[in-house]
Design a protein around this nucleic acid. Sequence first.
DNA 1: GTGAAAGCGCTAACAC
DNA 2: GTGTTAGCGCTTTCAC
Lengths: 336, 336
Amino acid sequence: MVTLKQLAKELNVSISTVSKALNNSEEIGEETVKRVKELAQLYNYTPNKVALSLKQNKTKTIGVIIPDILNHFLAKVLFGIEREATKRGYNIITCISNESLEKEKEALELLANGSVDGFVLCVAEETQIEGEVNHFKRTIAKGLPIVMFDRVAHDVLCDKVIVDDFDATYRATKSMQLKKRKNIAFISRINDLSVGKLRERGYNKAILEESNQEPLVLNLKKKDDSQQKIKAFFKKHKNIDGVISADSSSGIIAINTALNKGYKVPKDISVIGFASKSVSNHSIPRLSIIRQHANQIGANAADLLINRLEKKFDEEIEFKTKIVKTSLVLSKSTLK
Amino acid sequence: MVTLKQLAKELNVSISTVSKALNNSEEIGEETVKRVKELAQLYNYTPNKVALSLKQNKTKTIGVIIPDILNHFLAKVLFGIEREATKRGYNIITCISNESLEKEKEALELLANGSVDGFVLCVAEETQIEGEVNHFKRTIAKGLPIVMFDRVAHDVLCDKVIVDDFDATYRATKSMQLKKRKNIAFISRINDLSVGKLRERGYNKAILEESNQEPLVLNLKKKDDSQQKIKAFFKKHKNIDGVISADSSSGIIAINTALNKGYKVPKDISVIGFASKSVSNHSIPRLSIIRQHANQIGANAADLLINRLEKKFDEEIEFKTKIVKTSLVLSKSTLK
DNA sequence: GTGAAAGCGCTAACAC
DNA sequence: GTGTTAGCGCTTTCAC
């Protein structure tokens, strides 16, 4: 890489003159500015990022900690974060916690050594189960702001971006009840997560408001064979005429299993699931989905963080919790 | 963050003494080392990464440029890269090119300012279509090594990690022919990519080796409604009894479409697709898949790069092209 | 055994 | 209008 020093030497001026010229300082003569800029252009000079970071004590880099990159929703949020960050001149360093508390702690500590200006993260499953939050608090105490999205730790004071999980399943369930569905089941593979619990509660509320059905819930474990479990579940509960699914796979598998057992979809059974448009293609008829607008969640999270990073020194910003509303997109897996 | 300076002041010694003590230099007295280490521990001192990078002229950071993070295969490779990098003490800065040549160039230039020590990347679709490679060559000329994976630019001299695409579809097609399939179609949504073309060629070769069938290919565009196109394709070619799919969705959609049209799978029609285990769950019976071992591809790519970064100054390493072989995993969507 | 000083690349306050 | 200097946090050579 070319440095100011080299340019200065070649031009027979001082380093600071070159620096000022390139930064359009008023102090420098027109002629000099021109000469400097031309040489800089010629040598393709770009200021060394590391030196700038050291000098200005900020890196313009965001640490992103994601529990699972293979989760389509999380990948999409990452995409939203990256886009917003890039737009505002920030890079992202990505760490994957693999749903492990230990790895989450490590990532936080590793990057808190000056590598990043702040964090955008989604809390790991293990962290949620154990209810651990001290590593978050320590990081914030060090002066590194955190923005949490989707799965959040409620007792940590920071900006948050969440989904209206409770309302989403409540409304989805209600919409099925309106079509006279009487035996609506709830299938989830994310029962351990805060968002999974909220989704179940939304479903429960809708069910309990109608006096003629008890909640009917199938909780799958990560290691379960979903196809088999869902098949057995349908076999056991023959009168199911609706399924709300809390994760992206279960809904698709539910439709395909129902079809496989000879049910007509949506005549005999309606299915709605949290999923993305691309996954909804994996069944015929297409899965009706609860869209989470993952992109927007990511963009919002990055936005909140960058706003905080760039606030004036004396300015105080209150911690915000932004709710990104889901949309219910009905396709042919539900009754019109 | 605590700095050496602060520790030095508090201990009434010089900065260099503190530095040496923490780095276990022989020069420093036992007693001093102890005092220094204790205080460092107490204050949770960690060396400032940025200062270290500036001093040592390397960042221990890898730039990763991915065309599309929502592509499950690419996300999995990213996972592999991250894991290997973390294991070897490197961070990754991720940029998403969105299949755009322009964004790929930008990312490369943006990070070539001292932010990273080298790149792991997958060539964007637009870059492949236009056959542009100068930005890669420029980057390498600047002293930043590149490792390409999956989609590679053959006329750039660098390390590469690829899949045996040609062989994979050749073998998959052959395996169907062995089961007496006579009308095997090929469906692809990635016809524009180098890997897509290789996969089609592997299929073609197998088909042309048998004299009784002409290749039957359906190329889908990104914006196409795959369900509809595949349905129409089946309608037009009623005698199809096998499908090889080049991307992860088409295989699933092919099975579901076939079932929807009343075909029995695998009795009437066999399907094999490039896909991951989790996606193979989205049909009943499960899709038989060509596994690409994305994790390993990522790990290998990171490995090649880091080896090159850490080679001794005078050591020359030849450019390697590593082929990660696919595995054909047959499930019940193909005949036993 | 400890410290002073230089230097990585850059900016900015302060001379001249 | 241009240059000198200090300093961001760190390592390392060289004095003492």
